[in-house]
């Protein structure tokens, strides 16, 4: 079976995020870019399915040149080929536009399953997966923690956690699955894998290559506009409840919860 994994490059969660002078974007100078962790689950799952059912895994990334680093990482983990959709006109695009470009890049490929992360850890919108599925006209299963493909490779059974229970859904293929934490433990890119990745095909495509009109992309075409970014409020210092005995401390705590925190 052939599988496509879409991946996004996001700032490492360890990076210090600073808001830029325009108040609407972040300063990217000191940012370390990594593969979106939820996409990593998708890569891993695709590789496991390939190991079991055979076929090929194609990784599709979108964004500037640096995204090739993340595609190479996926190739080093074991994916077979990569596609980078890269075009200056894409700068500033919203989720809808990005999904359009990705859908155009994969629509003519031979695939049974598409994985995306359930959301990007940068802007946390979680829109791209569903939008790609809609554009391709295939079913979509979001926030999935377990994937089982039938022996004949024609259908899939997935599990989605809901309120402590599990929703189990079956579907025909092709389908799109958005990966949630818990789906698997992604493997490392091994050193032999890294050296092999160097020789794997990585194609680069512009919007024109995909037959798309660049006017539908970029800042100007956004349907979703960012008005302002604000940092999370500074966390206030903690308070240590004073008291001689546990009883005294409990009484003091109850008082604080009532008078100050106003939760009782």
């Amino acid at each position: 079976m052939n599988i496509i994994v879409c991946l996004k490059q996001v700032p490492d969660t360890e990076s210090q995020i600073k808001i830029g002078p325009d108040g609407k974007s972040i300063v990217t100078d000191d940012i370390k870019w990594v593969m979106n962790p939820y996409d990593e689950f998708g890569v891993e799952e695709a590789l496991r399915l390939k190991e079991k059912h055979g076929g090929e895994v194609t990784v599709v990334g979108l964004g500037p040149k640096r995204v090739t680093e993340s595609i190479r990482t996926a190739l080093a983990m074991g994916a077979d080929k990569g596609i980078l959709v890269s075009d200056e006109a894409l700068d500033g695009s919203d989720s809808l536009a990005n999904a359009k470009a990705i859908a155009a890049a994969v629509k003519d490929l031979d695939y049974d399953l598409i994985f995306t992360g359930q959301r990007g850890v940068d802007d946390d919108l979680g829109l791209v997966g569903a939008t790609i599925a809609e554009l391709l006209g295939i079913p979509q299963f979001s926030i999935i923690v377990k994937v089982e493909v039938a022996e004949d490779g024609k259908s899939v059974k997935v599990e989605r956690p809901i309120e402590g229970e599990a929703l189990i859904i079956e579907s025909n293929l092709p389908a799109l699955i958005t990966a949630q934490k818990g789906l698997n433990e992604p493997r490392y890119a091994s050193l032999p894998g890294i050296m092999k990745a160097k020789k794997k095909p990585l194609e680069e495509k512009t919007l024109a290559d995909l037959g798309l009109d660049s006017a539908e992309f970029g800042e100007g075409a956004r349907k979703l506009k960012i008005l302002e970014l604000t940092p999370p409020p500074e966390r206030a210092a903690g308070k240590i409840v004073e008291g001689e005995t546990p009883q005294e401390k409990a009484a003091e705590l109850a008082k604080l919860l009532h008078d100050e925190a106003k939760v009782l």
């Binding site: 990482t73 080093a76 490392y188 050193l191 890294i194 050296m195 990745a197 160097k198």
Partner: peptide, 14 residues
């Protein structure tokens, strides 16, 4: 090279 950077990431990750 890209490979060097990836090797560094793998070992750090490990």
């Amino acid at each position: 090279t890209d490979e060097h950077s990836m090797i560094l990431e793998t070992v750090k990750d490990f």
